[in-house]
């Protein structure tokens, strides 16, 4: 729990190398830190500050703006129950109430065993499947209270290994082979692209 480990530091350098300015990699790197530790630690933020050459305060400034970054430990499974308008119309409040009762936590709280954090969240983009939720950003659609109980039971019994630990988003990363990379379009390199100038330049 701390700085990015050696593997992640290597990935971090790869990501930074894709941008014309290093600071652009900040959000992806904060995700990387959260993937490593389950939340974003102060040490990781300092390390990222070094990597992208800004102050730790700037990293905190960005980090604290975004809902997904947790600056304190959360449950292994972060259950986000949507309470956007479409879900609201189809029983989101009742579902949230049920979830909080069942797990014995209140808005954003974590169960004593550290397994689950439950939170009512703004629209998560599955409006026609209302009410919906995400567990570590994996969807469950048209969720009844019985469905919810079954989901929690499945997770507890280890039957949902398809849901990765909190912090992991895409299981596939972009990887640009060195020989195929065009490279970042540097701000300082104020060149008209060759294919445009060949064609009689800018319209």
């Amino acid at each position: 729990m701390a700085r990015l480990n050696a593997d992640n530091e290597r990935i971090a350098h790869e990501i930074i190398g894709r941008y014309p300015r290093k600071k652009s990699a900040l959000i992806p790197l904060l995700h990387l830190a959260q993937e490593q530790d389950g939340w974003v630690t102060d040490e990781a933020m300092s390390h990222i500050a070094d990597l992208v050459e800004v102050t730790p305060a700037e990293v905190l400034g960005t980090c604290s703006f975004y809902e997904m970054f947790k600056r304190h430990p959360v449950g292994d499974y972060h259950v986000n129950i949507c309470h956007g308008i479409a879900c609201h119309l189809l029983g989101a409040d009742e579902l949230i109430h049920h979830a909080e009762e069942t797990l014995g936590v209140k808005g954003g709280g974590t169960t004593d065993d550290g397994r689950f954090t439950v939170e009512g969240v703004e629209c998560i983009a599955a409006c026609t499947e209302a009410p919906c939720l995400q567990v570590n950003y994996r969807f469950a659609n048209k969720v009844t209270t019985q469905d919810f109980d079954a989901l929690i039971a499945d997770i507890r019994s280890g039957a949902r290994s398809d849901i990765p630990p909190h912090g992991t988003l895409a299981k596939t990363r972009q990887s640009i082979p060195e020989e195929r990379a065009a490279g970042p379009a540097l701000v300082e390199d104020a060149q008209e692209p060759a294919w445009l100038s060949r064609n009689g330049s800018d319209q």
Partner: peptide, 15 residues
Amino acid sequence: EVSVDVVLHWGAGAY
């Protein structure tokens, strides 16, 4: 001679 990188970037929760 057309060379363009397409870089996947992702957000962190902010409408």
